[in-house]
Design a protein around this nucleic acid. Sequence first.
RNA 1: GCCGAAGUGGCGGAAUUGGUAGACGCGCUGGACUCAAAAUCCAGUGGUAGCAAUACCGUGUGGGUUCGAUUCCCACCUUCGGUACCA
Length: 957
Amino acid sequence: MDYNPREIENKWKTYWEEQAVYKVTHKSDKPKFYVLDMFPYPSGSGLHVGHPLGYIASDIFARYKRLSGFNVLHPMGYDAFGLPAEQYAIQTGVHPAVSTQENINRYRSQLGNLGFSYDWSREISTADPHYYKWTQWIFLQLFEHYYDKNQQKALPISQLIVHFEREGNAGLQAAASPQAPFSAADWKAMSAKHRDEVLMNYRLAYRKVTYVNWCEALGTVLANDEVKDGVSERGGYPVERKPMLQWSLRITAYAERLLNDLQELDWSDSMKRTQSNWIGRSEGAQLFFDVAGTDHKIEIYTTRADTIFGATYMVLAPEHDLVPALTSDAQRAEVEAYLKYVKSRSERDRMAEVKEVTGAFLGSYAVNPFTNENIPIWIGEYVLKDYGTGAIMAVPADDERDLRFAQKFNLPVVDIIDKSMYPNATIEDKLGKMINSGFLTGLEVPDAIETILKEIENRGLGKRQVNYKLRDAIYSRQRYWGEPFPVVYDTEGVAHAMPLSELPLTLPDLDDFKPASGVKSPLARVSSWVNLPNGWTRETDTMPGFAGSSWYFLRYMDAQNDSEFAGQEAIQYWRDVDLYIGGTEHAVGHLMYSRFWHKFLYDKGLVVTKEPFRKLINQGMIQGVIESLMMQKDKVNGVNRFVCATIAAEEEKKGIEFVKIPVYVDYVRDYGLPSSYMDAEGLDKFIAWRPEYQDAIFECPNGIYQKGIFTPRAGAEGGSHLVTVSEVGKMSKSKYNVINPDDVVEKYGADCFRMYEMFLGPIDVAKPWNTSGIDGVSRFLRKFWSLFFDPKKGFFLSEEAPTAEEQRVVHTCIKRVNEDIERFAFNTCVSAFMIATNELGRLKCNKRAALEPLVVLMAPFAPHLSEELWHLMGREGSIHANGAYPEHNEDYLKQDSVNYPIAINGKTRATIAFPADATQESLTKEVLDNPAVQKWLEGKPPKKVIVVPGRMINIVV
RNA sequence: GCCGAAGUGGCGGAAUUGGUAGACGCGCUGGACUCAAAAUCCAGUGGUAGCAAUACCGUGUGGGUUCGAUUCCCACCUUCGGUACCA
């Protein structure tokens, strides 16, 4: 009987579904294991062969754990809110809910095609009101809590109010926005509106003025990466930084814990380092500079207080609150011109600018508290409003940026550190001896830092402070397709949380998805929804993409629960994600926000672990091959001229310009190789696809192809053979290189597809998709299958006991696969299966006792094939529910003799078999008597003989 | 610039703790089966020299440690990824 994957796979897929084989419950005595894939956004172009790489790996691991006796939670769902659906709606009028559902259906069917062991009863979508009810609820919890630094946890706002009523904000250690001191009496005298404003400075979800990239021409707010060089990427319209009152999440309150708890995670070092750099903890000093002739004080933050004697000027962020007050009349015009320029610059531009420093002098002076000299105050775009205090003391002698600024604007430079005794030290190194620095002169830098910090605190100029690069997360989007905020504003604009009983607050229906006029979400146009009967109004912004994905891993634990975000019983059992597989692109976004939300819920006693994702594996991207034809930029004799890539390379040297025209990779032979080419057949397909090129000429060294006719060049042999340009890049619709897994599954079967993707190489390495090896995997599966079949009798297994050699083959494979799965080396598992299959084939082994363990061993990799063989072997129920993962028996691996490589001076010269239990002495003696060794010894005694038992022997002569 | 990862046959890759470099697969070459082809099976396949035994070279480059280095150390080159006027 031939191996027919399509038939087998359909049969068992249906069976698994009918029998609910992968359904799990937390009511289990078995130990739990939670395997999670990163939440996919269901894009319009569907899954391509790159997506499943991580899903296959996690599925193998989940199945492996199941067969090893664990109760495995392995769910899947969709991050369904997002910009693409909204943009599609603007273009086509199709409601995002409709297009999103279509995309989800497509994903669901594509995923179903690959034989994953998901418990589909737990499927979730963030755009489902049953789900976002709880996203809204968690947001409200954040709104109603503040962060207490003494207790290092979130506490209810009601406790904060009690504190305010008792003693104002004195003695409060809380994560907060800048807030002036006030007393209990002050608090009691405040209006409701005023109190609301004060509380906003403490809430974990709060409103503040932040800047957005506003594009008037497109009538919309743009993301940072949609802005290039100050204009919109689409259309090139001007973009302006516009201040807006927006919701933010006070993630900075958790900075220290987010940093410290990284230690206990089983993540790659590079991933941890990325997160820790993003949090960016620094120790330094908060310090006040007086402004000469005024009462103003400028607060700065510095990590290098020791360099203060070299602070010869100050720089404020252009958006700094004090800028208007400190601008002199004489400088006003210049400053305003500069501010206008800065407004046109996106944050990304400002930070990416390295070569050119810009700035403007305000016309005021600050007093350096240690030199007592007046130093000029400037503004410059290299100082960012949201980092530190938005103001710096500039020390051109010890900071490269400050130096460049000083040189450009002719500001004084005072050397304060002598680095001559540290010849290799760079300007950033905290090394050297202080000079020109008053009482610090002569001290080494680390001592100087300590000394000046004490002095600053003694003189009341400021205090030690820990600072983080991490910024609070902006949580408002002026979009339709996201979770509505469960917040209403009263007539004074005070925000009120909606009660749980009124959740979810669902999105109103809409037929026009364009933004409303002004910087507003499309929701602002639905006045019946926005305006409430009592005169109150709803928030019209919606939540960002990361809202729904920051807690979805908890929802899977109890996905249908309608009275809680997840039931406590389920949370107590499943606890956290044991294995999380996904791409590195989420290193600082999703993975930081999720950890923050999880910690917040932990503070509230709603989850039981400090961290959500115990182990993280990053999968590499599977890239596509982009194949392009070279077309001469200008037409020749009125027609387009395409040439062989080799010809184009020659002619480009002569100054002829070419453009690359990407083509469907299917038209190209040997695609992905340097020699990839299009023959006449491919060119005909190309012309049929792009009729505008029907008259074009296609020129290769053999001759010219035009309108279906090939004219050979004199003396040339062979037909049309147009070499294309091959590049490796992203798989995308626009590059015509998307490979749909469905097509591969159709041809080879899901089991083959799964094993082939694993066979490509290590899980975490990026590599281009190439089908050239898939036949080898397909061949292997058929070989494995045929071990169970006799040409005459059909399915037939012998009940004889396996020979020692057969057992050795089987148990070598078992050992190898178990070890390799544990270290996520799935590629070498596949080769271990291949080796065992080849050897058993050679031994003509068809013994049940040898083959049955291999069937179970392979079940995580080829679930359908294994299931079929399991049933053919007469076993009951699903292999995935009733199988037990085999463990190797060391006895079978013992060998009577060992082949020792014999090296002379480290170079292998011979191999000699010795009994496995040979002693060191007998080995040494016999080796030296060996003729091959004698030849190298040339009669002289060896200097040294190294014997590594069971491994090798090395003789030094 | 900084941080991180990686450089191994024609190709994807293997070598788990410093111990036979190139497992496994693709491709290629030769052979068997076939009228023929496909499929399948068998053999070979890092380079150079040689009929061969074998010798020399060989894991980006140059040094080092070691009986022995793809693996450890130093310097450099290249590629990929991340990241930034972070005070």
